[in-house]
Design a protein around this nucleic acid. Structure first.
Lengths: 156, 156
DNA sequence: TATGGTGAGTTTGGATTTCCTACTCACCGG
DNA sequence: CCGGTGAGTAGGAAATCCAAACTCACCATA
């Protein structure tokens, strides 16, 4: 019989196993902002130094960041996003927009991103095929691994 | 003087404070799939029951889930996403796509989402104003709170 | 009416992580 | 030589996590 104990196989879970630990996505935020030095990260994130060191190692190992020296003698390092890391930035933007909408009063947004088009960035997740915004009602899930089910959302 | 110890104020951090704990986003995944009952969640996520109970309380308190009885006598409950919860689904989709691209070989995707347009969902984060995909090079950050800086990403 | 089963948790006690403070080590500037 | 900065390590207390067992209410059946 199939495994009845294992959790559902899923790329969301896999992704979170890499970047879902505390501070990891904040590290990515800072690194994408161009603040990739250890002490900057400590200050801007508010993480304990040892935890930060652990996270950085992990993110480098995972191929999300690179560590490069910006100065030999004295050796000084800087972390930067890889391509894979940069491709997580839209996730951060979407999450930030969600936070701005649901966690704050009015338009007290601590940070505004400007898009190259000249407007303030308001990220929208769309379907590549048809271009429409992704809405829950328009989605249907199909597990590719047998044994895993999705109940259609019983109508509200 | 300004606080030199506090971390950067940021909606990403605030959002993660709510949904960034282990399992929280997986709970949301299951609930969006329509699997909102406690034992389903335990099985599909693989979380310890006590942790799950804690997360559920937190997500309900935060207004991301609701708890509703689908049966009185015997009392049986089901968790469902609120509007705010549903609006996090695009984040999950984007994260899943990232995981599919970077964490898996070939097209071994454990789960495929079908969009109402008839195609397999490939989520793209776009700028609402101009419709273009969001790319790192096209963004410029502006902290709204003084004292916080962003270094322009020194050219690769 | 005893027997077993399900759903939805709570309890318990031990294994991991995280957190905080302090410390190191290398180098630089005066 | 002295103090300061960047990039971490070290050590122990505090918080979390985990698995398994337990509870409690109810239903099914025999």
């Amino acid at each position: 019989m199939a495994a009845t104990k294992d959790p559902r196989p899923c790329s969301i879970a896999d992704a979170l196993a890499l970047v879902g630990e505390k501070y990891s996505l904040l590290v990515l935020r800072e690194v994408c902002l161009g603040n990739g030095r250890f002490d900057q990260l400590v200050r801007n994130i508010g993480a304990p130094r040892d935890i930060l060191a652990t996270r950085l190692r992990r993110l480098v190992d995972a191929g999300i960041l690179t560590k490069r020296a910006y100065s030999e003698r004295p050796q000084r390092f800087e972390y930067r996003p890889t391509q894979a890391g940069l491709e997580l930035e839209p996730v951060l933007m979407t999450l930030m927009a969600w936070g701005d909408r649901h966690l704050r009063k009015d338009d007290d947004r601590p940070m505004v991103i400007e898009h190259v088009c000249g407007n303030e960035l308001a990220p929208v997740v769309t379907c590549r095929a048809c271009g429409d915004p992704v809405r829950h009602e328009d989605l249907a899930a199909h597990p590719q691994v047998s044994g895993w089910t999705v109940s259609g959302p019983s109508a509200a």
